[in-house]
Nucleic acid binder design. Structure first.
Lengths: 230, 230
DNA sequence: AGAAGTTTGTGCACGCGTTCACAAGGCGTA
DNA sequence: TACGCCTTGTGAACGCGTGCACAAACTTCT
């Protein structure tokens, strides 16, 4: 039993809350006003026991024999995740990935406002991306102060990432989302999450190789897939 | 003790092997020919006991009193991850994210060859991206067959992702990397890994909120950061 | 050769997360 | 009201992953 001294939600549960949230929005759009743990589990790709246990960490928001009120649950999860307030984000590095992130609609949709796009490349500075002019990295401290930025996104090459992280921390940013393929060193109290595109591919490669070298599995999969050309 | 019936490497270990690999390459570039579990742990951001236990699943490749031979370890990890062979990859969806992925050097560098870039938008088809002409999604089956593609990357909007996944599976792809923010349903035998940009931000939001509502922590962090303006 | 210093490989214990299984509780119907 | 049906909430067991701590093994120095 996790020692929740009144508010200790397990990390594994926190990581699933956004998934539940997305499933709930989808269910709400389908016109449902109430949802069972089983239906939500199906929409989120997990089993129902996990859903019930996860939601129980937030409180007893369900009704036995009925299920959960969709809108109420959306609100409770949003509140728990801190999505009832807006967060200002800076994106550092306006290469291909920076462009993609700046144009990704999923951010604004969930209350994340892009306060600025920054780069060191003077050729990029001034260019319009996603409705904003790219500004120079040296303006970071100003941007963080005036827009109350608490989250920084690093979309630079690996060799520049640590320097950018240091600047972000010095400017007062306490959460960093790092897309650069490298380890970041930050003081305690600053959260870093890492998204690494090539690591995901390498993990797939591992499993793919095992399929190739396990002829029985490979054959079974091939046969089933050819038998049912969905 | 994990039941490794001769070759059962734990998932948690597999997920760390690419990190060790990157750290090892960096160590090799620094001119080191041998490395201790402690040094490798430092480079990978974990503790040394974990490094030793992880590497012990691959075999006894170290020398007591000395450490691990860097080049040999690089080879063994590469082999275990299936990186000693080239993998063909198709990228479906050539929006901002598709562009970023196509131009990301980390793929080719690790033996992942982009066999084709596909899209349904006829305005995109024919455009040159990362040295390749974008082709229409209908050519998927041909591409998979002629280039022996086993990995598909989905970089489309969410509403198109399930259809693309179905097509990939039907064409014979058995591993999928999904960037679309939705749940994919695939037959067993097909591996799916998901990368979701906005979920990561929401997890950061959760922790950021807890910092705000825990004044003691917040104050301590702020004081420490202002005292040491790195 | 022997002793001292290093570093690996691993048995063991602990803790977190998952899953099962069921009691508790609410709804609908007669 | 009483009975049957449905769904939540959770205690308890299990399994995986982590980290400690130490024996085994190799190197270096005297």
């Amino acid at each position: 039993m996790p020692d929740l001294g009144k508010r200790g939600i397990p990390d594994a549960t926190v990581a699933r809350l956004p998934i539940y949230l997305r499933a709930l929005v989808s269910i709400a759009e389908a016109g449902e006003t109430t949802v069972s743990s089983d239906a939500l589990a199906h929409g989120a790709g997990v089993n129902s026991a996990k859903v019930r246990k996860d939601l129980s960490y937030l409180g007893s928001y369900g009704t036995r024999g009925v299920g959960y009120d969709v809108q109420y649950l959306v609100y409770q999860i949003s509140r728990e995740l801190g999505l009832t307030q807006d967060w200002s984000v800076v994106i550092v590095g306006v290469g291909n990935l920076g462009h993609a992130l700046a144009n990704y609609g999923g951010f604004a949709q969930r209350g994340f406002t892009i306060a600025a796009l920054l780069d060191v490349d003077t050729r990029q500075v001034g260019e319009m991306v996603a409705g904003q002019a790219v500004r120079h990295l040296d303006e970071l401290t100003d941007v963080v102060a005036t827009s109350s930025v608490s989250i920084g996104v690093i979309a630079t090459p690996a060799h520049a990432a640590q320097d950018v992280a240091d600047r972000l921390v010095a400017a007062g940013v306490t959460s960093i989302l790092n897309f650069a393929p490298c380890l970041l060193s930050v003081p305690s109290g600053v959260d870093v999450r890492k998204v690494d595109l090539s690591i995901e591919l390498q993990i797939l490669s591992f499993h793919e190789q095992r399929k190739s070298t396990a002829p029985r599995v490979k054959a079974a999969v091939a046969q089933r897939l050819s038998a049912v050309p969905s």
